[in-house]
């Protein structure tokens, strides 16, 4: 095994038993929601205006 292995006991994760390999691999967070753009903000603004008028304010 290329990765460094070392026994871990009661580390910060919780409890680990055995020589679980220490070989970090990043998992970047994926983009699933479109970031708010000008169009989205404008729509939200219009929507909020309509709702406010609907409430009679």
């Amino acid at each position: 095994m290329d990765a460094e292995t070392q026994p871990l006991e009661a580390d910060d994760v919780g409890v680990t038993r055995g020589a679980l390999p220490v070989a970090p691999l990043g998992m970047p967070k994926q983009l699933l929601e479109r970031p708010e753009g000008l169009r989205t903000r404008l729509l939200a603004l219009v929507g909020a205006g309509v709702r406010t008028r609907g409430l009679g304010n």
Partner: peptide, 22 residues
């Protein structure tokens, strides 16, 4: 065997935790 102190992200988080460490 390893036990997480906090089960963040449930099963997906559990797998992710393993991959990020090992």
């Amino acid at each position: 065997y390893r036990r997480r102190a906090a089960n963040i992200g449930k099963k997906a988080g559990n797998i992710e935790d393993f991959i990020e460490r090992s």
